[in-house]
Write a protein that binds this DNA or RNA. Structure first.
Lengths: 192, 192
DNA sequence: TATTGTTATACTCTATAACTATA
DNA sequence: TATAGTTATAGAGTATAACAATA
């Protein structure tokens, strides 16, 4: 930052052909795409997709699209990643750190440091899984649970403020729409 | 690089208690809340807000809620912040870096480094605003514009995949719903 | 051999505090 | 005095590569 003159920031490594390919399956986020657009692949851009894109951009002019949990993080002196970790642990109970990483959308290498810091804050504890001695399970401490309760409350409040922007009919429409999306995702997951 | 016009780098001095409170207004993200829940403030948690929260959690089991642009970032060797910056610059044209920070949802202190790195990558250029000599305008280079076009394409594609999860009726419902939200946000902004 | 996590390294992101230049 | 940006610092997030223990 203070010396952009030093080096051209080699974010990209020499992309050496790596055969081992550790994979580290990260679930592919939500808006992933399979590589750069090679040749304009048919359905890449439709009137409907552009319309949705445009609407999202308009929304972005009112509230930042990056990091919807920003306010909650700041209020509690936590990072977005930490908030997500605590929320998943509170929702699902003790969880393998690998699965936790997948839920959050980070790699196994990264989750180690995240859990390290939460453990140092006395919010989370680690334990070996008795069934599979390779695996590590993370769980909330009593302090972590108390914080989770507060975070959960904040998120519910935020959801309420979001619903305030909708007429009652639109709220019902939104619920139904989301439920149908979930049903479709579930059936897709089953066939796959 | 970081200074359109040149200037000697100032030194840093011993920190002292600061009362000035620079503020740095960050737009408050999207799901902000005013402080910790003090006493359970009435409408904080309603059946509807809990229902929406639950639906979102279910969605999070299929795709990570943190960082929807993950796949696009990875494909292009960019960070989420960088993608957001490029998309806003591509959409809006040359922009004051302060406004850019607000759009992205980061502080003025942070945007400096972000633009530094994009500049080092030859994707963005800086220039002084002739009207207000304090302000700095960022704009895409030709390379940056070319990359923006690719990113835009990827996002459109991702929007299309999202719409694939919806029946045609639900797509129309979603568009209408978003348009009504935008209208409400616009009228709120006007009165405020 | 494959899988689950950790360690070491190097970079980006981010906020805080103090400063400069302009208005 | 207030505003727009930059600098310096410190800590957190992140991926890559190499490694350990278990299966």
């Amino acid at each position: 930052m203070r010396r952009p003159d030093d080096r051209p920031a080699p974010r990209v490594q020499p992309l050496a052909a790596d055969s081992e390919q550790e994979q580290d399956l990260i679930d592919e986020g939500g808006l992933a795409e399979e590589g750069l657009p090679p040749q304009v692949d048919g359905d890449a851009s439709t009137p409907e997709s552009r319309r949705l894109h445009e609407l999202v951009i308009q929304l972005g002019r009112y509230r930042s699209l990056r990091d919807p949990l920003h306010g909650i993080c700041e209020d509690n002196q936590l990072t977005p990643t930490q908030v997500h970790a605590l929320m998943w642990l509170g929702n699902d109970g003790p969880t393998h750190v690998g699965l936790l990483a997948q839920r959050i959308g980070i790699t196994k290498k990264t989750i180690t440091g995240v859990v390290d810091r939460l453990e140092a804050m006395k919010l989370v504890e680690r334990a070996r899984d008795a069934e599979d001695r390779r695996a590590v399970v993370a769980r909330l401490t009593p302090q972590g649970t108390a914080l989770y309760d507060r975070l959960n409350h904040s998120v519910n409040h935020a959801m309420g403020r979001l619903l305030d922007l909708l007429e009652p009919e639109d709220r019902e429409a939104l619920f139904g729409l989301l439920e149908r999306v979930l049903k479709r995702l579930a059936s897709r997951a089953q066939t796959a």
